[in-house]
Design a binder for these strands. Structure first.
Length: 282
DNA sequence: GACCAGGAAGAGT
DNA sequence: ACTCTTCATGGT
């Protein structure tokens, strides 16, 4: 099986990275192997100290997916601006943002609104099972994430089994308007953060939070700072005390939090967001 | 801006 | 069994 040996200036934790909640299609087996589907590949991977062992993808693919080329030490140095974030970073050593496939990421975050993570995972697995392509891998069947046409062709009714609730027409509508996922991906990718954000928010079911997640997780726009209920609570308690707790998160509050984070944590504030989120129960 | 719908499943009591 | 919460968004 192919291996990657991590160097000293390449901090990486597979468990932190896949377990922090940024991805929905990976599972950790009892024996320490992680199994996941990325694009058209079923992959298994495990970490033994500084050695990564994997199957189902090339070394280049794994390096790119896990952002092993990113100088994480420098990123952390730049966001480590106060004792609170310092503690969060310390409790999630080796956490890296992965490079998610954009189309799957888009639909995932449309499905994520006001739902807990197990529910989101079930919805995405259901979409893949209904409309994706089956892959056999080590005696098990996995399903690729379906392209826009596969989802749209089934019609709105065909989505009912996926139990998306009110998100169903959003997933359907977005699958109809993004007919060519690669063309869509390239168009978003060459836009700067603000323009890409506006463009994403024209899609039905994509608000500020989902747009920021997609930009951060799929397009590596690290200046994005997604504000969900957890982040809002953390920011309110530890950084911006004069926010009204009982009011719903208004667009103004969202932008205040986002603006503060961008100023306070800098160009890689998205990384700060992920450390704060991952350490939320710690 | 305030309010509410849509809706399934986890978490806590 | 019951209530509250959940990686929010869109429409009125």
């Amino acid at each position: 099986m192919p291996k990657i040996t991590l160097s000293d200036h390449q901090p990486f934790s597979l468990d932190q990275t896949l377990g922090c909640g940024q991805v929905f299609r990976w599972d950790r087996a009892e024996d320490g192997w992680w199994y996941g589907i990325v694009k058209d590949k079923a992959i298994k991977i495990r970490q033994d100290g500084s050695i990564l062992v994997f199957k189902g993808a090339t070394t280049t693919f794994i390096r790119n997916y896990f952002s092993l080329d990113l100088d994480l030490k420098e990123v952390i140095k730049s966001i480590d601006q106060d004792p609170f974030i310092h503690a969060a970073i310390g409790s999630c050593t080796g956490l890296r943002l992965v490079r998610q496939p954009p189309w799957e990421c888009l639909i995932s975050y449309i499905c994520s609104t006001n739902s807990n993570i197990p529910t989101i995972r079930r919805r995405i697995a259901s979409l893949a099972e209904q409309f994706g392509k089956a892959i056999e891998f080590e005696g098990r069947t996995y399903y690729t994430f379906p392209n826009p046409t596969s989802i749209a062709c089934e019609g709105n009714e065909g989505l009912t089994l996926c139990k998306l609730g009110y998100r169903q027409p959003y997933v359907f509508g977005t699958s109809c308007s993004v007919t060519d996922e690669r063309q869509w991906e390239e168009r978003i990718r060459r836009l700067p953060y603000d323009d890409a954000r506006k463009e994403l928010m024209t899609l039905h079911g994509v608000g500020p939070k989902a747009a920021d997640c997609i930009l951060l997780f799929a397009f590596q726009k690290y200046e994005a700072f997604p504000v969900d209920v957890w982040i809002r609570r953390i920011m309110q308690r530890n950084y911006i005390r004069n926010l009204d707790l009982d009011a719903g998160l208004t667009n103004r509050d969202y932008n205040r939090i986002r603006g503060f984070a961008r100023e306070h944590f800098g160009d890689y504030c998205g990384y700060a967001q992920e450390y704060l989120y991952a350490a939320r129960n710690g």
